[in-house]
Design a binder for these strands. Sequence first.
RNA 1: GCCCCCGUAGCUCAAUGGACAGAGCACCAGCCUUCUAAGCUGUUGGUUGUGCGUUCGAAUCGCACCGGGGGUACCA
Length: 609
Amino acid sequence: MAQRRLRKAENKLVGCYNPVDKPEETMFEDVKGQIAQRIDEFCLQNDLPTGKVEFRSIPFSGEWGMAAPLFPLAAADTNKTGPVPQHAQFLAEKLKEVIGLPAGFTRAEAVKGYLNLYFDTALYAASVVEQINSQGPRFGTAQPTDETVMVEYSNPNTHKPLHVGHLRNVILGGSVCNILEASGKTVIRANYIGDIGLHVIKWMCNYEMYHAGEQPAADEMRWMADLYSEADRRFHEQEGFEDEVRAYFARWDAGDEHIHDLWLQTRQWSMDGFAQVYELLGEHFDRIYFESDVEDSGKEIVDRLIESGIATDGRPENPVIVDIDAILGTKEEYRVAVILRSDGTSLYATKELPLAIMKFEEYELDQSIYVIDVRQSLHMKQMRKILELMGYPWATKIHHLAYEIVNLPGNVIMSSRDGTVVLLDDLVREATQRALDVVHEKNPELDPAIMLDVAQKVALGAIKYPMISRENTKIVTFDWESALDFNGQSAPYIQYANVRANSILRRAGSQPQEQGAFNYTLEPSEVNLIELLSKLPDEVSKSAKDFKPSTLAAYAYELAKAFNDFYNQCQVLKAEGEVRTSRLALVHAAKVCLEKTFNLLGIQAPQVM
RNA sequence: GCCCCCGUAGCUCAAUGGACAGAGCACCAGCCUUCUAAGCUGUUGGUUGUGCGUUCGAAUCGCACCGGGGGUACCA
């Protein structure tokens, strides 16, 4: 029995150990096992339950180590005499004696109910840096698993512009994909394009009536956007235009060949515009689904749902619905899902069903993630439940990754209808110009082509960072001033740290061949930096677990801050001997980690600024 | 009415139930004969919306309330 309990406790400590991921655990794994064993022995001898002691890291103190809070053990001790905190302290002191000082540790202390064991600084530092430098860009990437996930994101409507309000979805989705990949999963990036509906008909009707034969300008997106808002304005303001659109819709429904051809042509113009944006943002997709592809199969599914009694057909007066609450006996939880209009035309929900099925038929998915606006939460919940009611066992693998919208100051929501949108193009152009001015001022001798490249990377990073550095469920308020502020907690700050690291390495000549031994008294800023570097794999898995790039974005900033601090405190090139070697290796490791986080966040790192 | 999200420094936001709640912006004062000052250092700033509860320990978990936003049968 004691043996079994012992093994269980050991597993708790070292069970999740992964040699590629975690340098600190690689080094101290054996020792940790030994310590755990001694703690368990102590517990058994003193009639205390095992498995109550877990290790965490000690809050920054300039030294590394692991800490064991002894409160849970103290609380569980039936023989305790005083209050828990005092008893925890008592136990910590006892354990300190029992454990002694294992190899690789330099100091042990019992303080405030915690048992703290400090690592040998040089050994720890050298190990972290060596592992990062030997693994390079692979550092922070977990071992491949056999899990496959699909992430559906972006989902733009054709014939409409992609604007800043749509940006968060793309940036968030793309970054989540990168992070999931780094956590060992196979990721399929899917994009579901809204290529049919009233907005398309409106656009085409307006085009035929007022712009027949015109070709898009080089800037397809803007051209399409301008025509869209024109069509929308006519629809609401111009006498008779709505009737024209209705008539046009009827012709489309009847299968008018000319309209169909025009639709294919104009849809392509939109797709070309999207492609430009995706290229600019560094996004790509593995699978494109068109809404038009699932319209017919959606209606078939509705028929099946009616036949099987899940759906109620209220036509012609009422729509086809699934009263989920009535079926499940729940009350106002799932409400009523409308899956087909009373006139038999399809809704968003109609097409959502076959799309979900298609995904799982095409791929063996362990998870199907939808990056969609939080306002569609109920809708997503309904879809999932309907698929479950239809008997699809994979329905539970659907996950709605909800995010909050981007609005304008004063809680104004961007709308392509009343011109409150900020076009992506305008934002990028403005930001690039702003960045270019700064580069010009800071680094005037740079080659103009490089200057422009740098400005673009800085501008895009600055735009993307606010979108991923906030928690998914928090509203991002867009305003020009903060979007174009390149100082402080922003992507350019992080990029700048990386440029500084690069600058040191460049001046040092070749890449550091030797790994430092860190056999000198480290500055606090060095210790802090190394500490953060070692945390990267943990941050990646944390961020992947919750689908939260914001975790990693915060980490990137911390890292840059730590590097800037180090940069100011510690000479590298002018240092000598062991110090120089070690610091050079550290700078290289820092650059590896900074670039890795950039990579995962979808931000590009210029080599000069 | 019911459901979901948010509420932390003047503003924008952080903080696997763990040691003293931290950054940025703004304000003020310093630091470029030293690897890029898009940087660094220092000062100021808090009843974590309110009240109960769970816990050795709560910004974090539970319940109630207050305030803001969103959703709630033929938009997406």
